[in-house]
Amino acid sequence: MKSLIDSQLAARVAQDIPDGSYVNLGIGKPTHVSGHVPEGREVIYHSENGILGVGPTPEKGTEDLELIDASKRYITTAPGAAFFEHSDSFAMMRGGHIDIAVLGAYQVAENGDLANWATLDEKFPPAVGGAMDLVVGVPTVLVMMKHVDRDGSPKLLKECTYPLTGLGVVSRVYTDLAVLDVTPDGFRLVELTEGNSLEEVQSVTEAKILT
């Protein structure tokens, strides 16, 4: 099957970020989305640690060590940026003021349940961060992830087996193999990565893909 690489996937998600949006990008793959938003669109990025208006990565040697994003990477400010403290930051998230969140995931279920904070492996201490607050408050939650796990097991499921981050919160899933909407009836195909057939993608998806 044809599989998008991470930068292609980020570019695909970026196409769906409208001009004028306030967007929170989760740690990992989603941070790359901002580099691919088409010219001419002004998007304001929120980072949970207290900034609206995250700008590009600073040039080497010009970093401000106290100006970082939620992934703990050095950032700059974009025009119109603002700093604020944590209560305000989470009021923006929980209070429905952010338009779009882009998150990674371990698993997504056909009813929109999201699992992205803990596995069943007790060796690892749980770490939830701001994901649970984000998904209850942001109206459009986009997930970008690999279609199947490293061991080949499906990640698009009838029901999640890992602990949930939020219930029925995912709007759309972008994987290396396909784009799928979460609808009241389940996953509905938006598009296949060029060169893939529905049968092929369905064969590595536990949940039924509607067309």
Binding site: S87, F90, R94, V128, G129, A131, D133
Partner: peptide, 10 residues
């Protein structure tokens, strides 16, 4: 004790 970040702040 793990607490969601916004719940911790609040």
């Amino acid at each position: 004790e793990v607490v969601p970040q916004g719940t911790l702040a609040e």
